[in-house]
Amino acid sequence: MAILGFLESGGGHAVSRNAREVGDSSPFVLTGLMAWIKALGPYRWASNRLRDRGMSGRTAVISVPYLWLLLFFLVPFLIVLKISFSDIRLGMPPYEPFVTWASAHVMDLKFNFGNYAFLWEDALYRNAYANSIMTAGFSTILCLLIGYPMAYGIARSKPSWRNLLLLLVMLPFWTSFLLRVYAWIGILKNNGLINNLLMSMGVIDEPIVMLQTNFAVYLGIVYSYLPFMVLPLYTAIEKLDLTLLEAAADLGCRPTKAFFKITIPLTKGGIVAGSMLVFIPAVGEFVIPALLGGPGSLMIGRVLWEEFFNNRSWPIASAVAIAMLILLVFPIWILQRVQGREMGAHR
């Protein structure tokens, strides 16, 4: 939900403009369709019932994404939460039932907090969380440093070029993520593209070991998530009022200072949105460290995989997932509250 909020603030401009364009081009079709829908008996019945209960059309529209979240976020979350309170057993499914019926009218709920206690006792999990957050954080900073100039360049390029440049940013998505990460193996390995090129040019004699190192993991994450950073930054920078920079220059402000005093604060929304879009999936990243990382790169995705597949412990794997969610959701929630308050203060 936090992400939805950020997206709205970052990409709202582009979306509303597109909506207007669509509305302009086909007003007759839409009004015709609307008239037809409104004439339908079920529509009138449903809207009357909703109005009786104090629900406007607005509530109904908003309820669609909530319904979506309920169905695909909350329900799976509750199932995982339930399993995390369970205990392992040999059977199908491989965990104890949460609810047992002692007799026809007595329901037993079993909460086993041991899984969470276990996570706390073994330093492995804490280290994995810390390592994941550090890797994701460092990757996010790298993405920001690379993505900001890119987005800035696109936003300041000729309007006729912008769509092409944006298309180039998004183009990699047309190939499967897994394939693109796999392609890096061919580039980085000992007799891969880079090493062969450098050796044939005589720059190095022995291949540089790049694959299965932390360097490869950072490279993979930055490469894969860069578009998620560039796109919200672009929408934020594009909205920036250039006259403000002119005014700053007129008043004798140097370009660097103007950049940090004006451009950065005014594009903060895009920076936060892009950082969240990179940071959150990078924390739980499994594929990139598994394919490009060395044995030492311990990330929470891998620990989760091991609990689930190697230890066959669905309950502990679920507890790891829930703990990760709590670890991620609370800071974001607080950040959003703070931001919301700031925005309120500005108004």
Binding site: M34, I37, S56, G57, V61, V64
Partner: peptide, 17 residues
């Protein structure tokens, strides 16, 4: 405003259906 909202509501219903 209410007209647009009702329109959106109708579309929403239609899409969901």
């Amino acid at each position: 405003m209410p007209k647009i909202m009702r329109c959106a509501f109708g579309c929403g219903l239609l899409v969901t259906a």
